[in-house]
Design a protein around this nucleic acid. Structure first.
Lengths: 134, 134
DNA sequence: CTTGACCTTCCAGTTACTGGAAAGATTACC
DNA sequence: GGTAATCTTTCCAGTAACTGGAAGGTCAAG
């Protein structure tokens, strides 16, 4: 399939897909007319990239996981240890998001949403998170 | 306090703190010797930036929230609507992280962690997430 | 057979830092 | 007081990961 189609199915802009090819993450076939030709498997990889990049993993980290995916001869212990360290990162990110969610909910609950100035809540954003231990 | 100190307390590298000043996010005082002099309030703002940037909000989004924080004459409805749209983004991010967490846990559970190749799990990464509706 | 929607490459610009050089200020030690 | 280490300053260059746009080739519809 063409790049536009792959873009639709993966959720990545065509520009980004070409960029990923540039940096060697993916190597689609080429049709006779020179157009890139993406397989279903390529689209799966793109979708995986879309998800993991969107969640804050670097391209290099994604490259590791993709490499493991493609290199069947690699010991699965590699996969396991990489996945486990990523799981810790994910857990941490979720906790941080919950904290920010809490702060913002507090903000919404206490702001009046009318024309009154002096919304006192944003102060809690800067201070309330993790109080200075000093 | 000096930038090194502010860096320690905010968790942001000094380089990044100077960059934030460059782009107008923050304007610390200057001591007689030309050194930047950060107040407690500055550190609060830096910590807020550290948290929200680390969670994927753009610098421009952070600038909005900081601007609201500093401009008391602004109607609090602004704060409320911005915060609410951010809350939706946060909720979405948490859901995506949970999905990735699920996928990776599945991976860890089914990989043997020994020398055996042919770890069959990574296939689930690329395919299992959201099956192609076609 | 042309119009418009694709696709190609290439090059430049953007965002958000990050590293390093050169030089001034401060602190710590002898 | 000297001096070495450790700040700090500015400035300029580089990186990561895209993103936009020009110039041009390809393809399906009318």
């Amino acid at each position: 399939m063409n790049i536009g189609n792959a873009s639709d199915k993966s959720g990545l802009p065509a520009k980004t897909i070409r960029y990923y090819e540039d940096i060697g993450l993916l190597k689609p076939d080429r049709a006779d007319n020179g157009y890139r030709d993406y397989s279903i498997s390529d689209v799966h990889k793109l979708r995986f990239l879309q998800r993991s990049r969107g969640l804050g993993f670097t391209v290099e980290e994604c490259r590791q996981l993709l490499a493991l995916y493609e290199d069947k001869s690699r010991a699965s212990a590699d996969v396991k240890s990489i996945a486990q360290s990523k799981l810790q990162e994910i857990e941490r990110k979720i906790v941080e998001l919950r904290e920010l969610q809490h702060t913002l909910k507090h903000l919404v609950a206490h702001c009046h949403g009318d024309q009154r100035p002096d919304c006192p809540i944003l102060e809690s954003i800067s201070g309330a998170a993790r109080p200075d231990p000093s």
